[in-house]
Amino acid sequence: MYEALESGIFLFGLVGLLQGNSTTFLDIVNKMRPGLTPLYNGGVMLAADSLGSYGSLARFRDVKRLFRVTDKAALACSGDIADYQRDDECGGYTRELNAGALHCWLTRVLYNRRSRFDPLWLECVVAGYKDNEPFLGYVDKIGTAFEAKEVATGFGLHLAVPMIREAREKKPNLTRDDAQKLLKECLKVLYYRDCRAHFKYQLADITPEGVTIHDDINMKKETNWEVANYIK
C-alpha cells in the first residue's frame, strides 16, 4: 500500500501539462504536482514545478522532475518520487530513441507493472520529436496513453489544459514566445490555486537542435498575494 508524501511540481510544455504524486520508499510517499506542456509552431515546451511534498508538508523544494533523455526526447514525471527516479535511470538505456518510441516503451512498462498489481505510481509527459515532427504524449500509472497538442498532469489537467486550449482557439499557431508566456501564466495560476504547487520551476525547450532545460526559474516576484489581506 502507498502512503502519501506529496510534492508539487509543475511541468509546462507545448504538448502538455504533467502533474504527479511522488512516493518514497516504505512509509513515505511523495506526490509530484502538475506539469504542463504545449506544442508550439515547430517545437515543444515543457514545465514542471520543483516541490516534493510529504502529505501537506512541503518537504523538498528543489526536486528535478524534467529530464533530457535523448537529443530528441524529454521526459517529465509526477507522482511517486522514488518511482520516477527509477524511471529516469531506464532512460539511460534509450539514448537512440525518439520521443514517440520512448512514449510507446513507457506505456508498455507502466501497463505491465499495473497488470502485475505493482504499479509505478507515475503520470508522465514525453515531449520531443518523432519523424521530425513535434511530439507530445501522456502516460499514467495504468498505461492510459495518448498524444495531444497540450497535456498536463494533476491539477494542470483541470486548470492549465483549458487555458492552453483557449489560447490556441484565439491563435492557432503559437510562437515560441507565446508558448513560454502561456506556460508561465499557467504555472502562476497553478501556484495561486494549487496548495501543493511551488514558485520554483523548470522549463524544457525542445527544438530540432536539441533539448534545453532551464533550472531554478523563480516566479515569486511576479505573484501578488495582497488580496489575502482582504479575506477575513
Binding site: M1, Y2, E3, A4, N21, T23, D27, V29, G55, R114, S115, F117, P119, W121, K141, I142
Partner: peptide, 9 residues
C-alpha cells in the same frame, strides 16, 4: 499511514 488505493482500470 495515508494510503493510496490502486485500481487497475
Amino acid at each position: 499511514p495515508r494510503k493510496h488505493h490502486f485500481y487497475p482500470y
